[in-house]
Amino acid sequence: SGEEFIAMYTYESSEQGDLTFQQGDVILVTKKDGDWWTGTVGDKAGVFPSNYVRLKD
């Protein structure tokens, strides 16, 4: 389980282990570690910068 966040911006990365997503995607955040959080979008999982998302209303 985790908290749902909304992507405010598209995040694209070629780094292994990074979670890429489109603006407006719902991200289920499973771990918060400083500026880099872990989460899932659909069947993808990985880390992403926390300043790209906001808490879902």
Rank of each mutant, 00 (worst) to 15 (best):
M8S: 12
G39R: 00
S13F: 03
D33R: 13
S14R: 13
I6R: 06
Q23S: 09
T10S: 09
W37I: 01
T30E: 05
D18L: 10
E15I: 10
V53C: 07
D25H: 00
L19S: 01
W36M: 14
K32A: 02
I27F: 00
D57L: 11
G46M: 00
V41M: 13
E15A: 14
S14H: 13
G24H: 06
L19E: 01
T10E: 09
K32Q: 15
V47E: 08
G24A: 04
G39D: 01
D35M: 10
Y52P: 01
G42Q: 13
S14N: 14
K56R: 08
T30I: 09
W37S: 04
K44F: 02
K56I: 05
I6P: 00
D18H: 15
I6L: 08
I27N: 07
V47P: 00
M8W: 04
G24C: 01
G42F: 05
L55H: 09
L28V: 13
I6N: 05
V29T: 03
I6M: 06
D43W: 04
D25Q: 14
T38R: 11
G17E: 14
D33I: 07
L28T: 11
L19P: 01
T10V: 04
S13K: 05
G24K: 00
F5H: 10
G39H: 00
A45C: 13
I6K: 05
Q22A: 11
F21D: 02
I27D: 10
D35S: 15
I27W: 02
S1Y: 09
V53D: 02
E12Q: 14
G46A: 01
L19D: 00
Y11R: 12
T20P: 10
V29N: 05
M8H: 05
T20W: 06
E15D: 12
T38W: 11
T20D: 07
T30Y: 05
W36A: 10
W36Q: 13
M8N: 06
E3F: 09
S50E: 01
G34I: 15
V47T: 06
Q16D: 10
T30H: 15
L28R: 14
K31E: 14
Q23V: 12
T40I: 06
K56L: 08
G34A: 07
F5Y: 15
L28M: 11
E15P: 04
L55I: 10
V41Y: 08
D33T: 11
Y11N: 03
K44V: 06
V26S: 12
V41S: 14
V26Y: 06
Y52L: 10
L28K: 15
T30N: 12
G42K: 04
Q22F: 10
I27H: 03
V53I: 04
G34P: 07
K32L: 03
Y52N: 01
S1M: 09
G39Y: 01
M8Q: 08
V29Y: 02
F5L: 04
K44C: 04
L28C: 11
G46T: 00
T30F: 09
G2D: 09
D18K: 14
I27R: 01
D43G: 09
D18C: 14
G46R: 02
F48S: 04
V29I: 05
R54W: 10
D43N: 14
Q23I: 09
Q23H: 12
G17R: 06
D18Q: 08
S13Q: 05
E3W: 05
F5Q: 03
V53A: 06
V26G: 04
E15H: 12
D43H: 14
D57I: 06
T20C: 13
Y11E: 04
L55Q: 14
A7P: 00
F5D: 02
W37K: 03
L19K: 01
T20Q: 09
E4K: 05
G24T: 02
F48C: 01
G17V: 05
T40E: 15
G42E: 08
E3H: 05
G17D: 07
V53N: 01
A7I: 02
D35L: 11
K44A: 05
V29R: 02
F21N: 02
T40P: 02
Q22S: 13
S13A: 11
D35I: 11
S13L: 00
D18A: 13
K56S: 07
E12C: 11
E3M: 10
Q22Y: 04
T20Y: 07
T40V: 11
V47I: 12
Y11P: 05
F48V: 00
W36I: 08
I27A: 02
K56E: 07
N51S: 13
L19T: 01
Q22V: 11
N51V: 12
R54M: 10
G34C: 06
G42W: 02
Y11Q: 04
W36N: 08
G39I: 00
Q22E: 07
T40R: 15
D33E: 10
